[in-house]
């Protein structure tokens, strides 16, 4: 037996996963991937995996988007200094 909330979250994953892939602009993608990470963490939490949910929040919703933004910022700095 799986509750309706769980199905809803699975559905959300099925939609946000492709959305992350189809967001072609990295900065916008940092936002979608962060949202996706939070949905995943919620799924983990609901399925009795609090340890994993915590890891997923710190990595998927914070560290990963942060690294993307840092990388984008570094690329932008380089492009600005080239001009």
């Amino acid at each position: 037996m799986i509750a309706p909330l769980q199905w809803l979250l699975f559905l959300l994953l099925a939609v946000t996963g492709p959305a992350v892939v189809l967001t072609r602009e990295p900065v916008a993608q940092a936002v979608t991937v962060s949202f996706y990470g939070i949905v995943l963490a919620l799924v983990f939490f609901l399925h009795q995996a609090p340890d994993v949910a915590l890891s997923q929040i710190v990595v998927g919703a914070v560290a990963l988007p942060l690294m993307i933004l840092l990388a984008v910022a570094k690329v932008k700095r380089k492009e600005a200094s080239r001009k």
Partner: peptide, 22 residues
């Protein structure tokens, strides 16, 4: 807290470490 209570409650060295790194 997370690092030191890894053997008791959810969390542990990895999660606590990332939190400290922020």
């Amino acid at each position: 807290y997370m690092i030191s209570h890894g053997s008791v409650s959810p969390g542990g060295g990895f999660q606590g470490g990332v939190v400290l790194a922020t």
